[in-house]
């Protein structure tokens, strides 16, 4: 998959995207269809979440199912506070996911509604070398 610059190019930070389709990874019936779906749709950005490891999980790390040319957008959906969101963002960057982060602070565990005030808070406490934050 290649990124061709056009007049309609979308930029997140200094990274160009020709597709405006952002892909989530929460509802795939099988991880084996992630790569063919990305190829067919042209989507160049895909979200993933960071969680405690489940020792009983049988599937491999989801990153192994995502083509290398597709940009990873880790989210902070596991965060209950702004501080936890910053921690997750730092871990994701150190883990090799690049400088993108989708900020989410969720305190409503029944309906997963975001805490908007909490979601807007993290950028004020980002490290000086900031990540490209992308609240969606």
């Amino acid at each position: 998959m290649s990124t061709k610059e056009t007049d309609d190019t979308l930029y997140f930070g200094d990274v160009p995207f020709t597709s405006r389709l952002l892909t989530g990874t929460g509802k795939f019936a099988s991880r084996d269809i992630i790569a063919p779906m990305l190829e067919a749709s042209g989507s160049e950005l895909i979200t993933v979440a960071l969680r405690r490891v489940d020792p009983n999980a049988k599937e491999k790390d989801i990153l192994q199912y995502i083509p290398k040319l597709v940009r990873i957008l880790p989210n902070t959906s596991g965060a209950r506070t702004a501080e936890e969101a910053v921690r997750i963002a730092r871990i994701a960057r150190e883990a090799g996911c690049g400088d993108f982060i989708k900020i989410e602070v969720i305190t409503d565990m029944k309906y997963l509604l975001p805490d908007n005030a909490g979601t807007l808070k993290p950028p004020r406490s980002w490290p000086r070398k900031a990540l490209s934050s992308c609240p969606i």
């Binding site: 990874t25 979200t47 993933v48 960071l50 490891v53 989801i62 957008l73 880790p74 959906s77």
Partner: peptide, 10 residues
Amino acid sequence: VELLSFVGGG
């Protein structure tokens, strides 16, 4: 010790 991994979501 916290052990974490990337999973589907978002």
